[in-house]
C-alpha cells in the first residue's frame, strides 16, 4: 500500500480506537513529556524547508519549529522533522503524528473550519504565480489560453488555477503531480508550458532546474496565499505557544533585537525590550520559562534574520521583503505587543 493510504488508514483506525477525549493541553503535555517537538515540513523546498548537504534541515518553515522548541525547552535543537507532501500534511497533523504543521501551507477558512486544525499566524505572505519557458515569449498570464499547466495536487494552487482561467474565459490543460520533484521534472521535459505554485516557491523550484535561466516568472499574482504554521484544535495552550513564538521573532525585529545583540539588549532601558527578553517578568501565562522569547531570538534569530538567511538577500533565492516587511517599513507583518 502507498504510504499516504497507509497513513490515512492508520489514523482512521487510531481515531476509532482512541476512547479518550482530547482534553485541553494534551499536545503541550505530550510534547513536554517526550522532550521534543515533532514538526511536519516540506520534503524539499529550498528556502522553506530542505535538508542541506549535511542533512541539517534549513528554511523559514523549519526555523518556526526551532523557535517553538527554543520557547518550550530553551533549546532550539529539540525538534524532529517529518517531511510531508501536500497530500499527506493534514492527515499527519490530524492523526497526531506531528505537533506542528509548518509546510508552506495556506490559511483558508475550510482548512481552519473543516479539518480540525487552526492556523496560528502568517510566516510568509505569498501569492500564486506562473513560471514559464522563456522561449515561449509569453509576457502575461492573460496570454496563457490553451496552455498546459503543471500543478501539484491537493493544494490551493490547483483550485486558484481553475478559478483564474475560468474567470478570464481561458482554456487550459492541467497535469497534476504529487510532489514538486515530479512537477519540476516534467515541466523541464516539456510536458507542460507553465508551472504554477506560490510565487516564492517558483523561485525555489526554478533553482532546481538544470538551467534556471530557461524559465521566467510572470508578473501576475493571482491569489492571496498567507502561509503559516497550524496545530490541532482543542489545545489552546499549545496554540498560544506556537502563535507567540512567531510573534516574538517579529517583535524582536521591530525592537531591533537580534541573535547577536540579545545579551547586550538585556541592559536596555526600553521597557518593551525588557519585557521581550524576560528582564522584566510579566505574567504571560504561556506555561513556558520567562526567558522564552530571549531563547528564540538568541538561538534562532529575529524575523529579519530568519527571512534573510533562508529566502532573502543572504540566500540563493534573493526574494525582496515586499509584503513581508514590518508594518512600519512598508509591509504588512505585524505582531501584537508582548505585555
Amino acid at each position: 500500500m502507498k504510504m499516504r493510504t497507509m497513513m490515512t488508514v492508520v489514523s482512521t483506525v487510531a481515531l476509532a480506537i482512541a476512547a479518550g477525549t482530547a482534553h485541553a493541553g494534551a499536545t503541550f503535555d505530550a510534547v513536554k513529556k517526550k522532550g521534543f517537538v515533532q514538526c511536519g515540513v516540506n520534503s524539499g523546498l529550498p528556502g522553506f524547508s530542505a535538508p542541506d548537504d549535511k542533512g541539517v534541515w534549513k528554511g523559514i518553515d523549519v526555523d518556526v519549529c526551532r523557535a517553538v522548541a527554543a520557547a518550550v525547552f530553551g533549546d532550539a535543537s529539540k525538534v524532529k522533522f517529518t517531511p510531508l507532501t501536500a497530500k499527506e500534511r493534514f492527515t499527519a497533523l490530524q492523526s497526531g503524528e506531528i505537533d506542528i504543521l509548518s509546510r508552506n501551507t495556506t490559511w483558508t477558512v475550510t482548512r481552519d473550519g473543516g479539518l480540525g486544525i487552526s492556523f496560528t499566524g502568517v510566516t510568509y505572505y505569498d501569492g500564486q504565480g506562473f513560471l514559464i519557458k522563456k522561449k515561449l515569449k509569453v509576457k502575461s498570464a492573460l496570454k496563457l489560453s490553451g496552455a498546459t499547466v503543471c500543478v501539484q495536487s491537493g493544494t490551493t494552487t490547483e483550485l486558484n488555477l481553475a478559478d483564474y482561467f475560468g474567470l478570464h474565459k481561458m482554456k487550459f490543460k492541467p497535469v497534476v503531480y504529487d510532489t514538486a520533484d515530479e512537477t519540476v521534472k516534467s515541466f523541464e521535459a516539456g510536458r507542460c508550458d507553465v508551472l504554477t505554485s506560490d510565487q516564492s516557491q517558483l523561485y525555489a523550484l526554478r533553482i532546481k532546474l538544470a538551467q534556471p535561466d530557461s524559465a521566467v516568472v510572470l508578473p501576475e499574482i493571482i491569489s492571496k496565499e498567507p502561509l503559516g504554521p497550524s496545530v490541532r484544535q482543542g489545545d489552546a495552550e499549545w496554540f498560544n505557544i506556537v502563535r507567540w513564538s512567531l510573534f516574538a521573532m517579529l517583535d524582536a525585529e521591530e525592537l531591533g533585537v537580534n541573535s547577536k545583540n540579545a545579551d547586550e539588549m538585556k541592559t536596555s532601558k526600553n521597557p518593551e525590550v525588557k519585557r521581550l527578553l524576560g528582564v522584566d517578568v510579566i505574567k504571560h501565562g504561556l506555561g513556558v520559562n520567562d526567558d522564552w522569547a530571549y531563547q528564540i531570538v538568541k538561538q534562532v534569530g529575529n524575523y529579519a534574520e530568519v527571512f534573510d538567511r533562508n529566502v532573502g538577500a543572504g540566500s540563493p533565492l534573493k526574494i525582496a521583503r515586499g509584503l513581508n516587511a514590518l508594518w512600519n517599513k512598508g509591509g504588512i507583518q505585524y505582531a501584537p505587543p508582548i505585555r
Partner: peptide, 17 residues
C-alpha cells in the same frame, strides 16, 4: 480513483474516513 478521489478530493475536503 486513488490519485484523484482518494488523493486530491480527500485532501481538499479533509474527509479521510
Amino acid at each position: 480513483l486513488v490519485s484523484l478521489f482518494a488523493g486530491t478530493t480527500l485532501n481538499q475536503t479533509g474527509q479521510a474516513v
